[in-house]
Design a protein around this nucleic acid. Structure first.
Lengths: 215, 215
DNA sequence: GAAATTCTGTTGCATTTGCAACAAGGAGTT
DNA sequence: AACTCCTTGTTGCAAATGCAACAGAATTTC
């Protein structure tokens, strides 16, 4: 993926696009699995756009557990200005999950008006708006899942979402069961136990990541 | 609060503002406690801005429990386009918590360009962007709280956020303890028990909604 | 000011969950 | 083939949690 293809510049003419790119002062950087992509304690005003690969935003809680806040892939945006409250989120960082390339830029280039490219700026803000809206939707969806009190309800809630998304009762999770447990904020073994119980009771049928909702 | 004071029009000149308001075709409506403000099953393309009072966005889960997704007050925005995924969120509705007045408008008036008021439109989108960003921050904050596995950790996480926000170790929750339990998605009695335990262990000192973080 | 409603606080008990620990299977590497 | 790493799957046990039910305090409503 090239910088010109970033969603931020969708709908902007080539000439203007080139102008903006040099004006935005974008820095590209590659990362390997496990590397820290960005530490938000030090980089409050930076935003990153994922050109390729996967990263996750995480935090280490008081007990030392890694808590995954979000998983991001191509075309997703991250940055303290976008999603974190400036005061409270000490210790949030982005870490590479799959070899990735990130485009970094300063937030103010988007938020503040650039003298030369007024119209392009407008479109860029609209593009940005669409992305943040989608992000809010995803966060909202996760809250809906997490707001269930039992592991069983969390799972059913998530399974129904994926089932509807696929349009049928059988579907395959796009991530590992370990990750699923992390996502619904439950202990993996407790989750496995619950999945087995649900199978025994005839609620679902499963084979590894393949899930079937019965009736 | 008047329509002219809505954040959406911040930074727009009076004359333009008037033009936009008539163009946006805004409908104002008052609601009493308990009334349904909006049912998103039927109103996918509407957005509402709270002029005064309080509402909450909620969903009834499979078991019939009311699950609060968000609580909103003056100047907050809600609408399916803003925060819900169009496919999965059947059964989401907004309900009045404190006598309120809402300004309703169609989403496309903001998203689509109006022939007459191009520049104003730009500013409106920027204003909207700021609000959605703040919303994403709040959702993110709640996920951080919910991602803790125990009630104790959820409480500590929330208490620390409020304590930092106030700038000191003593603070008063802006909502009831019943609501707090709903917000952290825990059983109220279990939460009360945990609060007492934490007091006994000298972690906190509490008197109703007044909380003090010790050491 | 009385009545109704909500909020705060408590307890016993059954169930769910987390934790720790282990083991088999698959994928990828050397 | 041997090795490593990660995923899936399992279990016992202690601890945390939800549920149901109750009661006094505070707040709101009429």
């Amino acid at each position: 993926m090239t910088i010109e293809e970033i969603f931020l510049f969708d709908g902007i003419e080539e000439a203007d696009k080139k102008r903006m790119i040099s004006c935005f002062n974008i820095r590209r950087q590659k990362f390997d699995v496990g590397e820290t992509v960005c530490d938000f304690d030090k980089n409050g005003d930076i935003i990153g756009i994922i050109m390729s690969g996967n990263i996750s935003l995480a935090r280490n809680d008081i007990a030392g557990n890694r808590v995954v806040l979000e998983n991001l892939s191509e075309n997703d945006v991250f940055g303290e200005m976008i999603a974190f409250s400036d005061e409270n989120d000490r210790g949030v960082y982005a870490v590479c999950e799959k070899k990735c390339e990130i485009a970094f830029m300063m937030y103010e280039h988007i938020s503040k008006r650039c003298q030369n490219a007024c119209h392009c700026h407008t479109i860029a803000v609209e593009n940005m708006f669409r992305v943040v809206t989608k992000k809010a939707q995803r966060l909202s969806e996760r809250i809906e899942i997490l707001s269930n009190r039992s592991i069983r309800e969390k799972l059913l809630s998530l399974f129904m979402i994926y089932s509807q998304r696929e349009g049928r009762d059988v579907f395959e999770l796009p991530f590992s069961l370990s990750y699923l447990a992390e996502y619904i904020c439950a202990d993996r073994s407790a989750m496995m136990r619950e999945i087995r119980k649900m199978s025994d009771e005839g609620l679902i049928r499963t084979d590894r990541r393949k899930i079937e909702l019965l009736h």
